[in-house]
Design a protein around this nucleic acid. Structure first.
Lengths: 210, 210
DNA sequence: TCTGAAAGGTGACGAAGGTCACAATAAGGT
DNA sequence: ACCTTATTGTGACCTTCGTCACCTTTCAGA
């Protein structure tokens, strides 16, 4: 299947680069819920998402986690680029939320291709750019918005990304991802239900109107 | 003075690139407190700091501002790169905190040099990288830490960046930069004074022990 | 020296959100 | 059908922080 997906997901890459990726990259599979990388880990490669879906979290020393953004097929983990290049520990945690297939590009090729392939260079830079903007928008939310707005935004993102109005998740997990507590999330969800924005089910939230 | 500072501040750049920067770049001066760019503005160029000091803020629609990080001589504004490249409006505000001299590189050269000069390419990427990390650390603070810790961190950054133990600033301004309120900052500072961490003066804070 | 503006201090109060304890429901396995 | 466990609901309470009102101190300029 890799033979078909790489040109499809990365059509801007030169044929030769697509071939190299297939030759040098190592395909890996992760089951849903499996961690692709842990906070504190070193990188030896950068990762391109082939299919599935990945969520990126920030963690602090006390184990609090905090959802930042999604990575979709055709995207790369900007942090793995940062860390691989600087030989630094990972500052983030990545988790598969569907069964996910990635291709890992060893650091040395990543560097080599930067000079060799214009399209790779462009890809790396535009990856930084888009993640940069995600981070800014994340900062906006936690700096300027209340938990109610953040919850709505979270649900909206989930809805758009997963393309479904029925979100299969429990309140505790949402609380973790927003670095809040279950009771608070439960209360806010209840309020949203009263406003007709969602309908609550066990282990699921149905989006009505956001 | 530009003739000497560019090779000095950007020693990794090829001689030819240094010459091009001097030829194509436009030197601009900003007085302390002057804004280098405003939220909502379009970019036609990216900026390299030659001397002085610049602070980068995030602003929301209601005019709340929020300090993110410093830019020092030899550094570039990553956001101006993002925005210039994508023809997007600025999502940030930049303000000189000392009299500051910058050199503005028009967008088309920025792109051209990416292919032409390895060192420029590397510079752009490492600018993204370091700003990326700044943003992550900013997120940490607002997501996981209370105002007390954030205030200490703010003062520490100021102290390190300005290389002085006497910070000339009033409480209201700190409150603005942390998106808090004067009273809260005053109270926290008082508490820090009781713990012997700082000594408070009018329009100034003396760092004792952080 | 006087005075007004700026800066800082303080108490009261409220809202948001975190924590605790425990009740109510629902689902799945036996 | 019954029991166990996971999930959700709820009230009480606390802390942090923002806001308001008003006071005190400091300082620069008339």
């Amino acid at each position: 299947m890799e033979l078909s997906t790489i040109p499809q997901l990365f059509p801007a890459f030169e044929k030769e680069l697509q071939r190299e990726i297939q030759e040098q990259g190592e395909i890996r599979f992760y089951k849903s819920e499996e961690q692709l990388m842990r906070t504190g880990q070193y990188f030896r490669s950068t990762m391109l998402i082939l299919n599935g879906l990945v969520k990126i979290y920030r963690e602090d020393e006390d184990g609090n986690e905090f959802f930042m953004y999604y990575l979709q097929p055709g995207q790369a983990c900007a942090l793995s680029m940062v860390c691989a290049a600087e030989h630094k520990r990972s500052a983030i945690m990545a988790k598969a939320v569907k069964d996910t297939e990635i291709i890992a590009i060893p650091l040395n090729f990543m560097e080599e291709w930067m000079g060799k392939y214009k399209s790779w260079n462009h890809f790396v830079i535009s990856t930084y750019r888009s993640r940069f903007e995600e981070l800014l928008s994340t900062i906006d939310h936690i700096a300027f918005r209340g938990m109610d707005e953040r919850l709505e935004f979270y649900l909206k993102k989930h809805q758009e990304t997963m393309r479904t109005n029925l979100i299969a998740i429990n309140h505790q997990e949402i609380a973790n991802e927003l670095n809040s507590s279950r009771e608070v999330i439960s209360r806010l969800l209840k309020k949203m239900e009263q406003f007709g924005k969602v309908k609550l089910h066990r282990n699921a939230i149905e989006i009505i109107q956001l």
